[in-house]
Simulated assay, not measured.
Amino acid sequence: MPSTVVLEKKKQQVAELADRLKGSCAGVVVDYKGINVEDDTKLRKELREAGVVYTVVKNSVLKRAAENVGLEIDSTVVEGTTAVATSESDYVAAARILNKYAETNNNFTIKTGYLDGKVIANEEVVALAKLPSREALLAQIASVVVEPIACIARAVNALEEKGGAQAVAQEAPAEAPAEEATEAPAEESAE
């Protein structure tokens, strides 16, 4: 029978992980077996720099914490070695970094993930990882917004180089008056 101290410690771990899951917009659960210390250190550093919190967790703690926040995870997720990466503001960072690592290390696999309180399959985590970063998406949106303004500026600049709107108006041909019909109507024969 576990002591009350051990039970209290586990309850605290469950509550802390549940708060972390609830406070994050996205997360990824991985099986980290086969990772050496050097690679683990590099991976943790990259995740930390991206604002992702990465911790190894006991399967029972993950299962209870997920239940507490309403995430229904498959029983296969809480088997083997398990680590959780969560991000409070970046939907893509954890998935991108962990997927990149999983592609180069056969023993390291993505189990599942979640977005805004909904569990997603590992295939969806991989698809999420392929999305550009938030900064890249904002740059793309900015270029779409700025392009029409840049076109107008280039057109105005071209007009200015030609001597302004008056020079362009002088170069344009005047409209020719509509030609009048010159043929007379055919006479009807009276036979």
Results as ranks from 00 to 15, higher is better:
39 D>K: 05
105 N>W: 08
4 T>C: 07
149 I>P: 05
47 L>Q: 03
179 E>V: 13
1 M>H: 13
150 A>Q: 14
158 A>N: 10
188 E>I: 01
94 A>M: 02
188 E>G: 02
181 A>D: 15
10 K>T: 01
12 Q>G: 11
90 D>Q: 05
38 E>W: 04
151 C>R: 15
31 D>Y: 04
126 V>P: 00
72 E>M: 10
82 T>D: 08
174 A>H: 03
153 A>I: 11
26 A>G: 07
46 E>Q: 12
74 D>Y: 02
63 K>E: 06
156 V>R: 14
118 K>T: 04
181 A>K: 14
92 V>D: 07
109 T>H: 12
65 A>M: 07
161 E>T: 13
63 K>L: 01
184 A>T: 10
62 L>Y: 06
174 A>C: 03
110 I>M: 01
28 V>R: 01
37 V>W: 13
62 L>G: 02
180 E>S: 07
173 P>K: 14
74 D>E: 11
166 Q>N: 01
12 Q>Y: 04
11 K>I: 00
108 F>L: 10
35 I>E: 09
59 N>E: 11
110 I>Y: 00
121 A>Y: 00
83 A>T: 03
15 A>W: 02
114 Y>W: 03
61 V>M: 02
137 L>S: 10
140 Q>I: 06
114 Y>M: 02
46 E>N: 13
145 V>R: 08
6 V>I: 00
25 C>I: 09
111 K>M: 01
44 R>K: 13
116 D>R: 14
27 G>S: 13
157 N>T: 15
48 R>Y: 03
171 E>G: 11
135 E>S: 13
70 G>C: 09
38 E>A: 15
88 E>H: 07
102 A>Y: 02
181 A>I: 15
99 N>Y: 03
93 A>P: 01
116 D>G: 12
21 L>Q: 10
190 A>V: 10
126 V>Q: 04
51 G>C: 06
128 L>T: 12
118 K>Q: 12
157 N>S: 15
117 G>V: 03
160 E>P: 00
68 N>R: 14
71 L>S: 07
107 N>D: 11
50 A>P: 01
154 R>H: 09
8 E>A: 09
71 L>W: 04
105 N>K: 14
187 E>N: 09
2 P>W: 09
166 Q>T: 00
179 E>Y: 13
100 K>R: 15
6 V>C: 00
175 E>V: 04
11 K>D: 05
